[in-house]
């Protein structure tokens, strides 16, 4: 299986890249959402699964960057994809600012700290006249991009995020991260620069999450603080990664598929799909804590995107 790794991945990528040619509108929508959620869940996986930064505040980046896109296109007439890019950088700035406070915290404190930041942003934006309080903004570029263009942007995000996490983990930083995950104190003594590696991953995570959120809001054309900064985003990412397998690159690929399938299937009953996801996630933590791909790897040794060098 591992021998055919690159051909399999190549076929998958070509399949995705040609969706606008062979797929129906519905398939295109499905693949678009799949790529966006894949990118965001890979980034949560990078933070929680590899860097032991259990973030419950991903919605802070999603909302902040989404609003940046809305404000830049509506108020300043910036070209839509440029404003998505700037939104990503805004997201990094937010991450840097947050890190001043929360990087002194570990584990659960970090989780709570990130969440509280997101809640504060929600309060700020819903009380801010400039962004029309809680009513939200429509994103109105002068030339709205076509569905196919948005799809390719999301494909770049999905494939790019997966490639980025693979490259990071294969690099020296990734080696340090994995050592750190196993034993933080010993790895520090061995010369792993923990603080810098963590900060680097936090920034990469916020950048790609922010960019992806920008593409998502170009697609959704409407942003509203109670949805943009809702904890539901992180809930979904956590479930995707846990079901697929935390700390594996393949995990989110499988988990996102299950999530998007379930959420489309139960599109009219969003709460039922969340209820089901919650039950599946708890069952998986209790019975197979490494998730679908982690368990598969333990049982059969299957791993198509393992950052291991052997």
């Amino acid at each position: 299986m591992v021998k055919y790794k690159w051909p399999i991945l190549g076929v998958l990528f070509v399949g995705f890249a040609t969706v606008p040619v062979w797929g129906s509108e519905y398939v295109l929508l499905f693949c678009l959402l799949y790529c966006l959620y894949l990118a965001m869940s890979q980034m949560w996986n990078l933070l929680a699964g590899y860097t032991s930064l259990l973030s419950l505040g991903q919605q802070a980046f999603i909302g902040f960057s989404g609003y940046a896109v809305a404000v830049l296109t509506n108020y300043y007439g910036v070209y839509i994809w440029l404003s998505v890019l700037i939104g990503g950088f805004f997201s990094v700035l937010l991450a840097l600012f947050m890190s001043l406070f929360i990087f002194r915290m570990r584990g659960i404190y970090f989780a709570i700290g990130t969440w509280i930041f997101a809640e504060m942003l929600l309060l700020w934006f819903s009380n801010w006249k400039y962004v029309k309080y809680g009513t939200g903004l429509f994103i109105k570029p002068p030339h709205p991009p076509s569905m196919t263009t948005i799809y390719y942007a999301s494909l770049i995000m999905g494939a790019g995020a997966t490639a980025a996490i693979y490259i990071i983990l294969r690099s020296k930083i990734g080696l340090g991260l994995m050592a750190m995950r196993d034993d933080e104190d010993v790895s520090e003594a061995m010369g792993v620069e923990i603080f810098r590696s963590k900060l680097f991953c936090f920034m990469v995570g916020s950048f790609i999450t922010g960019l992806t959120a920008g593409v998502l809001y170009v697609f959704q054309i409407f942003i509203q603080p109670y949805k943009a900064f809702a904890i539901d985003w992180t809930v979904i990412l956590v479930f995707i990664v846990i079901i697929g397998g935390i700390g594996t690159i393949e995990g989110p690929i499988v988990g996102t598929f299950i999530y998007v399938l379930l959420s489309q299937w139960l599109a009219e009953y969003a709460h039922i799909s969340l209820l089901l996801l919650g039950i599946i996630a708890i069952t998986i933590i209790l019975l197979a804590p490494t998730g679908i791909m982690g368990t598969l790897h333990q049982k059969t040794g299957f791993a198509i995107l393992s950052p291991r060098r052997l």
Binding site: A48, L54, G107, I108, A111, V235, V238, F239, I242, H271, I272, L274, L275, L277, G278, I279, A281, I282, I285, L286, P289
Partner: peptide, 21 residues
Amino acid sequence: MEPPLLVAFGLSIIVQNFLLL
């Protein structure tokens, strides 16, 4: 620390959506 935290997190979502239902 993570697994009990995530179980509780899942439980939170289940209770919320159950109440909503």
